[in-house]
């Protein structure tokens, strides 16, 4: 950090640096290194990930072991520094274990939707014509429902559970990703360099893989990252409504729902899962902003 700051401050060095040819990803990395907010946010997310994955190392309490005697202890109780929930389970360990499901339910649907929606969208945008109409009209049908309603409808039919939550959220995120990738691809396809590539004898597949994909992937990836925060909230919302993860599993949305009943007894404890949802989705949002800035070569 220090090093890059001094580099940027010295104009001669900055010029020299600008003149050196660098690979695209190297540049992205260098820009990211100078963006302190994004770095901090990535650090927070990284920390969160480590704590969630290695949850047993960070807590001595079983997240599922309750005790009638210890119900709804406030924050700062000896032995349970974040307090306990309505059946006396340690909140700190439930937060850690709950993060596993919440992050999984937040990231997996976006990732799956990115694969499916990105593929369909780019294909539709590049092929145009009938295929485009078919894919886009299908998207319109799914678009007719707000994504939360669509997710509720799907989990309502399939039943609650983590798998069905992920499936439902994947389906509701496919349309926006298709639409973004289709419009970006259509834009790029009509730019002169695609015709120039044709004029230099490139085959269609080469043009698609090489020129279209590399111009389109950045914006789609950034958009998908911004969906993660929404997805975490939606997943939490589904659990809150009883359509997502089922009790006694620890999941932030579900915890929020259960603790709601104790909100008068210990408001701070009841708010904690919500705070975690907020921090995580905020971090993903800020990270997608940072990525957008770093990945645009023209800035």
């Amino acid at each position: 950090m220090e090093d890059s700051a001094t580099l940027a401050a010295d104009p001669a060095m900055a010029l020299k640096r600008a003149q050196q040819g660098k690979s695209y990803w190297r540049r992205v990395w260098e820009r990211l290194r100078e963006d302190k907010v994004t770095l901090a946010v990535i650090a927070v997310l990284g920390m969160l990930l480590i704590m969630v994955v290695f949850a047993p190392w960070f807590t001595i309490h079983d997240p599922y072991a309750g005790s009638v005697l210890r119900r709804l202890k406030p924050v700062g109780t000896p032995g349970h520094w974040l307090g306990t929930d309505e059946v006396g389970r340690d909140l700190w360990s439930r937060m850690l274990y709950g993060g596993r499901l919440s992050l999984l339910a937040g990231v997996a649907p976006v990732f799956l939707a990115l694969l499916i929606g990105g593929f369909l969208g780019i294909l539709a945008g590049y092929a145009g014509g009938l295929l485009n109409s078919a894919v886009m009209r299908l998207t319109d049908v799914l678009y007719a429902f707000p994504s939360i309603l669509l997710a509720i409808a799907i989990t309502g039919i399939l039943g609650a559970g983590l798998q069905n939550t992920i499936l439902a959220l994947t389906i509701s995120f496919i349309p926006p990703i298709i639409r973004i990738s289709e419009s970006v691809t259509t834009q790029v396809r009509h730019l002169d360099f695609v015709e120039a590539a044709r004029a230099s004898g490139a085959r269609r597949l080469t043009i698609m893989r090489y020129h279209i994909l590399s111009n389109v992937l950045g914006p789609i990836l950034v958009y998908a990252t911004s969906l993660i925060s929404i997805c975490i909230i939606l997943a939490a919302g589904l659990s809150f409504l009883g359509l997502g993860v089922t009790p006694p599993s620890a999941e932030w949305g579900l915890m929020l729902n259960n603790l709601r009943q104790g909100i008068w007894a210990s408001p701070l404890v009841a708010a904690l899962p919500g705070v975690m949802i907020f921090i995580t989705s905020m971090c993903f949002n800020l990270m997608s902003d940072g990525l957008r800035q770093a990945m645009d070569v023209r800035l």
Binding site: Y24, D192, E195, S214, V297
Partner: peptide, 12 residues
């Protein structure tokens, strides 16, 4: 081409 800005691929 007429417009060298758009006739060259911006990411390579």
């Amino acid at each position: 081409f007429q417009e060298p800005m758009v006739a060259l691929d911006p990411v390579f």
